[in-house]
Nucleic acid binder design. Structure first.
Length: 633
RNA sequence: GCCCACGUAGCUCAGGAGGUAGAGCAACGCCUUGGUAAGGCGUAGGUCGGCGGUUCAAGUCCGCCCGUGGGCUCCA
């Protein structure tokens, strides 16, 4: 029971707060794609690109060993967009080294060596790699066998194979290109050196990892590098500064803590206002809970046993320990327990924009996407077990409705099912019912989904929803999770039709996840050019000369009275520069006023797309903008 | 936390191999009243992240600390 709880909470945190950069969820993608019955895509491992990247990893290892003959090599797989290889070298690599390595690689490739595969016994392999301790460890693992690359037991006898090209032979299961002539010497690039632990274990040797990207053609490489540059322009940290939305102040304030500036604060207000109203309209109650609670609360919930590493040190209040909350659920449960509940009261849906604080290691903090203090759009549903199917159906649809309202239309869902025997709590029937409820809801919602078999947490299955942003990057925002466990821990009950107490089920769910993280995603998705309803400044009036300022003010007052957010740029800059500045601020409507417009009671409308709509009557423009706001464009 | 890189004016950045700080933009002032992405001139603004050390002399070299960025469960 206790371990089960650990999974609940840890899973909840991970789901929301792993940075979810594509590379970070890669392992899961491999698996999901491999086992997907829905995607129909050719698995990455079977593509030529995969072999090409894998081969380049070997070529890179050869080049590095030529430069550092005493160097030790670890592993070097293909990854999304490229490949890497981990090395244990006598000195740190410099950017100049990367260039030199790249050059050597090109020379090796040009010789068009063939790849030769051979199988050998563990003993032969040990002799071959006698001076490569990491390889020896891998060989030991292979010989012991019984585990595939996902850590799953396998019956197949281990086969040890190597691939050799030119002078370099590496322990490798392949596959590779036939010969290096298949690789265009100008279609790859080494990107960076980074630290990585042997086998991902921070207690073990830290290695130097060289990342490279590789493609079939130089054009594709260019395109990829261009994509990276585009992504950088959209970086929410850069835009947050340029648009004056938020800041962080690590020196005096502390890392991972966010200051929402007036414009960002306004956007958050608009988003929350919309969401809260939708929650109220869909059968949720809005609640508020404190930021701290006594240690007994966190003992009961299991947080102190299993989540303490992520919690901050206690406060002493009158000799009692209080903890800053890392989650809202225990408070909502206390609220549930504050009175006797009847089946007639269920489902109860407590929603809270709850601000929580969690310790994150300093190295993982990242802008708005990974922080230490954040506000979840959290809710807990308390449900009769037999009503769970309808409840999941409801929450899933509500979730999509909210996400769509912010302009996200491309979703991918993941249904994570029961882990292996002995690794799950609850009886099989509970699980089966829950999984079926989730899957049916996914079908009814007409959502593409993949199943992640055994990927559920110990306590129950879950649905995670990822959205695809304008650059095609996936971000996980929403999670909808069953919980069989906390109701037990807190001995929650409701009185059923039979007059007897029963145990409710719980759903934890966050739709936008956290306001901080969601805001970061939103900024990157729109590149700062937000939908009109969210734009901090919706309209700027641009007088061509000072004599047009009074008329501009008059129009501005009218638009403000209609509920729009309007500014008048009465500075001494020329019109061209005012347009440029408004453009940089991504203001949706620029209304230019000169003698002609003023005389005709019009404004010349320019959109941030650059489109010039020409002179329009003020009433028409007002209606056009109001329509855009209302339709959330 | 660990590895690497970085930390110079509000912002973006220059400052070959040590000799008492520069540019553009922003800000402010003056001039300009200009039709769809930068009008002109001028002014002000920096204990070069912090603390120690080497040196006649340190933004520049060394050490420690703080912070930022990229990585760190992709398994031969």
């Amino acid at each position: 029971m206790r371990t089960a709880h650990c999974a609940v909470e840890f899973g909840w945190n991970r789901v929301e707060y792993c940075p979810l950069a594509p590379n970070r969820v890669r392992g899961f993608w491999f698996k999901a794609e491999k086992e997907s019955k829905m995607s129909g895509k050719v698995p990455y491992e079977e593509t030529h690109l995969y072999r090409l990247r894998h081969s380049l990893a070997h070529v890179m290892a050869q080049a590095v060993l030529e430069m550092f003959p005493t160097g030790k090599i670890a592993i070097g797989p293909p990854i999304q967009d490229g490949f890497y290889y981990d090395f244990d070298l006598p000195r740190p690599l410099t950017p100049e080294d990367l260039k030199a390595i790249e050059k050597r690689m090109r020379n090796i490739i040009k010789k068009k060596h063939k790849f030769h595969r051979r199988e050998l016994s563990a003993e032969e392999a040990r002799q071959l790699f006698a001076d490569q301790p990491y390889k020896l460890e891998l060989i030991d693992g292979l010989e012991a066998g019984g585990v595939d690359e996902y850590g799953e037991p396998t019956d197949e006898p281990p086969v040890i194979s190597t691939y050799k090209h030119d002078t370099f032979e590496d322990l490798c299961k392949g596959p590779h290109v036939d010969n290096l002539g298949e690789i265009h010497p100008k279609a790859f690039k080494l990107l960076k050196v980074a630290g990585a632990y042997w086998r991902g274990d921070e207690k073990r040797q830290q290695l130097q990892r060289i990342y490279g990207t590789a493609w079939e053609t130089p054009e594709e490489l260019e395109e990829y590098l261009h994509r990276l540059a585009e992504a950088e322009k959209r970086d929410h940290r850069r835009l947050g500064k340029e648009l004056d939305l938020f800041s962080t102040e690590p020196d005096m304030l502390g890392g991972g803590l966010v200051l929402w500036h007036p414009k960002g604060g306004l956007m958050r207000h608009l988003a929350e206002e919309f969401c809260k109203n939708e929650h109220l309209a869909h059968g949720y109650d809005l609640v508020y809970t404190p930021h701290i609670g006594k240690s007994t609360l966190w003992e009961t919930s299991g947080h102190l046993d299993f989540y303490r590493d992520s919690m901050y040190a206690p406060l002493d209040i009158d000799g009692q320990e209080y903890f800053l909350k890392p989650m809202n659920c225990p408070f909502h449960i206390l609220m549930y327990k504050s009175s006797l509940r009847s089946y007639r009261d269920l489902p109860l849906r407590f929603a809270e924009w709850g601000t929580v604080y969690r310790y994150e290691r300093s190295g993982v903090l990242h802008g708005l996407l990974r922080v230490r203090g954040f506000t979840q759009d959290d809710a807990h549903h308390f449900v009769q077990p037999e009503k769970m199917p309808q409840e999941i159906d409801f929450v899933l649809n509500f979730c999509l409705h909210i996400l769509r309202s912010f302009g996200f239309t491309d979703f991918q869902a993941y249904l994570s099912t029961r882990p292996k025997e002995g690794k799950a709590v609850g009886d099989l029937q509970q699980w089966a019912d829950a999984e079926r409820a989730l899957e049916d809801a996914l079908k009814r919602a007409n959502l593409p989904y993949d199943i992640d078999p055994g990927g559920g947490a110990f306590y129950g299955p879950k649905i995670d929803i990822k959205i695809k942003d304008a650059l095609g990057r996936e971000w996980q925002l929403s999670t909808i999770q069953f919980d069989f466990n906390l109701p037990e821990r807190f001995d929650m009950t409701y009185i059923g039709e039979d007059g007897q107490p029963h145990r409710p089920y719980m759903v934890h769910r966050a739709l936008l996840g956290s306001m901080e993280r969601f805001f970061g995603v939103l900024i990157e998705h729109y590149g700062g050019a937000f939908p009109v309803w969210l734009s901090p400044v919706q309209v700027v009036l641009i007088p061509i000369a000072d004599r047009h300022v009074p008329y501009c003010r008059q129009v501005a007052e009218r638009l403000k009275a209609a509920g729009l957010r309007v500014e008048v740029d009465d500075g001494s800059e020329r019109m061209g520069n005012k347009i440029r500045l408004a453009q940089k601020q991504k203001i949706p409507y620029m209304l230019v006023v000169g003698d002609k417009e003023q005389a005709a009671s019009q404004v010349a409308v320019r959109l941030r797309s650059g489109e010039d709509l020409g002179p329009r009557d003020v009433a028409e423009v007002e209606q056009m903008i109001l329509d855009a706001v209302a339709s959330k464009q």
